[in-house]
Design a protein around this nucleic acid. Structure first.
Lengths: 145, 145
DNA sequence: CTAAATGCAAATATTTTGCAGGTTA
DNA sequence: TAACCTGCAAAATATTTGCATTTAG
């Protein structure tokens, strides 16, 4: 089933409607590479239909994660980012504090962490929404800049 | 050496000055329990001296983490939080997505994670600035509300 | 037809910045 | 005294909300 179909299904199942705007927002997330801010999503959507308002983009970006089609992360730079999930599934994000680059890696790096958190304090970690700050390989070598 | 002394030393070492405002900001972080937003810090500081401006609090909160006296984390709710480090040292934060509660736990839960990230992609994780989203024990039981 | 969604504009919230005057070393 | 810091006000940024109108089902 295409993600488009999934969207329609999920919307209907909960009494939401399929609008061109929602299709477009899903589409730009689908086609775009990786993490997208609301603003970026908005400008990409506007290439498809220039009248779409950014408030609609915000509303849609708030909606899509509920359908497991999109995930959202806050890299801690004051701009939440959204990402299409269909292709690779959930993963976690590594955020370089020096250059801002974000890379996604498989959740499999951290199964032990989840178990340990569960065991140690009963906390149920949602790794798919996790972003880990640090230094990417390039910046780790040259800490300044 | 008291954290006050450390602050003075760190400030002087880098050509910064010790001001009452900076002392007060450090003080409220020191006395407060756990994570504090800029706004919270500001209102606590104002109890000590009502004229202190929030922009000064922001400036100081941007400064203190550089001295390893304070750490900052962004729980992903659009409000960065700050925390005094002297007592317990660095740790990571578990953030409940249902009730918003934040608890800190020792970095020792995740040494394997750091190694794996380093090995897998050369990423140097800064766990002390990490916050992990998920569900706290209470909310994990009663997912709604 | 009706509930839901959109566009627009205005409101909110958070953090940053310019600058004149005050303060630390 | 000189560089640094503060308070104030205004700006910048990001996101949300009210409401009249439009639209999907």
């Amino acid at each position: 089933m295409s993600c488009e179909q999934t969207l329609i299904q999920q919307l209907r199942a909960r009494g939401f409607r399929l609008t061109p705007q929602r299709e477009m927002v899903l589409s730009v997330l689908h086609d775009g590479e990786g993490l997208v801010t609301a603003e970026e999503g908005h400008s990409r959507v506007q290439r498809l239909s220039s009248a779409v308002d950014i408030s609609t983009v915000y509303r849609t970006l708030g909606l899509l994660p509920k359908f497991d089609l999109v995930s959202s992360v806050d890299p801690g730079d004051g701009q939440r980012r959204y990402e299409f999930l269909g292709l690779h599934g959930a993963h976690l994000h590594l955020i370089c504090q020096a250059c801002g680059q974000v890379s996604g890696i498989d959740l499999e790096v951290a199964p032990a962490l989840v178990e340990q958190l569960q065991a140690a304090c009963g906390f149920q970690a949602a790794l798919d929404q996790l972003s880990i700050p640090g230094l990417c390989p390039a910046c780790a070598v040259a800490p300044d800049g």
